[in-house]
Design a protein around this nucleic acid. Sequence first.
DNA 1: CCGACTATGAAATGTCTA
DNA 2: TAGACATTTCATAGTCGG
Length: 594
Amino acid sequence: MDGDASGEEGASIDWTTDDELEVLAETGTSSPPILTTDGIEVIAGNEEASSSAGGPHSKLVKQFVGMGFSEKLVLKAIEENGGDTDLILNTLLTYSNLEDSPEQQLSLGSDPSSSDYNEAILDDISDMDSWSENDVAEGIDSLSEKHKMLLSLANTGSLSDKEKSLLVLANMGYTVEEASLAMERCGPEASVSVLTDFICAAQVAREESYLHEDDLKQNRFTNGNSKDKKRKFYEVCKRKNAIEEETIRLPNPMIGYGVPSQQPEHIHRSLPEEVRGPPYFYYENVALAPKGVWDTISRFLYEIEPEFVDSKYFSATARKRGYVHNLPIQNRFPLVPLPPQTINQAFPLTRKWWPSWDTRDKLNCIQTAIGSAKLSERIRSALERYDGDPPESVQKFVLEQCRKWNLVWVGRNKVAPLEPDEVEMLLGFPKNHTRGGGISRTDRYKSLGNSFQVDTVAYHLSVLKEIFPNGLNLLSLFSGIGGGEVALHRLGIKLKNVVSVEKSKVNRDIVRSWWEQTNQRGNLIDFDDIQQVDGERLETIMNSIGRFDLVIGGSPCNNLAGSNRVSRDGLEGKESSLFFEYFRVLDFIRCYSR
DNA sequence: CCGACTATGAAATGTCTA
DNA sequence: TAGACATTTCATAGTCGG
């Protein structure tokens, strides 16, 4: 009924040829991936049909740019070879090879001055060590010297987008030279995936030059040995994909190292000596992030495997999250009293109106926005047409919407979204935690939707109680409404000094107000912007209050979250890339505390 | 300008079935 | 096992009225 009116879009797009090369790349080595002349004819046909949009070869250009070659190279290659994809690929591979050797530099019009990354810094880095060895073959080692060094550069201030990408690529095992070349060629907006594609192509080209040096010198632009080249290209791409496909899988059931009601027989994990606390750290983000995100996060956070837990095992609402931490996992204990475990227990008044065909036991994840009044009205009028149970199709529609928007039954045929104080209770906060102080209702939903589930986090942090009987110093990054602080407080762990970094003023006010109301004896210091929390400032703080025992932080998820239709850009997204700031600060604290 | 409100899918994963 | 089908998701941008 609602948003299914988009049936026509696919008709005008012809997908039959677009993925030709990618499909070939995925087929195993058993069948050599050779482009047939059939494919070329089809492509040529399409290109005539769509010549009004873009250039005459726009489709071909897109195809090769998608493979990681720069647009300039592609255009030049097409100009020389027409529509023959075989010849174009050959030429491209040759070009990218020649670009690596200065004496044979072609004037391809690549303009170094247009790229604004700091070449001086990069040169310094690449001179400092023998990073040019290709790590891909050896596999990825744990926290390498590379990004430690990058980090020490970054610790004086915040990270630029380019430095972030560079860190990511360095962590994937690529050399800094490769990464910076790729970034220069692919432009500042290029995603990591595009960059790795480019590096792949360059690697092939390099290996090619090694194997066929003579051949290339004599026969620069001809179609020599194209089968070998392409085979090589696909092999390297496969190697790259093998790295990318090393995806962390979510456990089912999502109980991490155990939940109060379900504790595995024997749980054990051994952390490497160098990551054992203190300082302890606790990082959180959404479990269902785009592919590869958790691999990257885990690689940065010292190769510690994330613990994925769904908060539905702690409360009446689901909340699937991943936590990376170096806490002990033995002898955890839950907060008491245990919060309501079902919708029924949490909202007894809804039982009277709850239809038998609504089989929900738990609510879905609480988000930052609520269902509209119009939807509730649509549901009511749909149900009022029937005396008893509505037909199955209506039931299905209503249930779908109730699940999607977390609606509960508040009257005859009447559904409604949760109230802010109900959300507070479900998430383990004291009632009215976010109320007052001039905060709007909308902002309450937003702040709560972005928060921890306190019981879940407290269960993990409970092991700290016996480690720090006299309290601890807490560094809380992206504090939000203070889920970590509330969890520790409810556990009875004394907070000596809390340094809290939170962008939103209303959230800082909420934490401050909670701090005062709970008669805390320690000090609460808050900061606005994590990018301003540099090494110098941290050092000053630590000289004053002592070292941090615990670093808590859940970095922004909005570019990772599934409900974001607009900017689900992954870890490189505008806000979610602040993860690298978390890492920067954490690594500084760790280095300083040693 | 602020706050309430509404419309806006896709991507990843899980489950069922041939 | 592959593919159809089902479920879930810490959101954004725009409008409107005060």
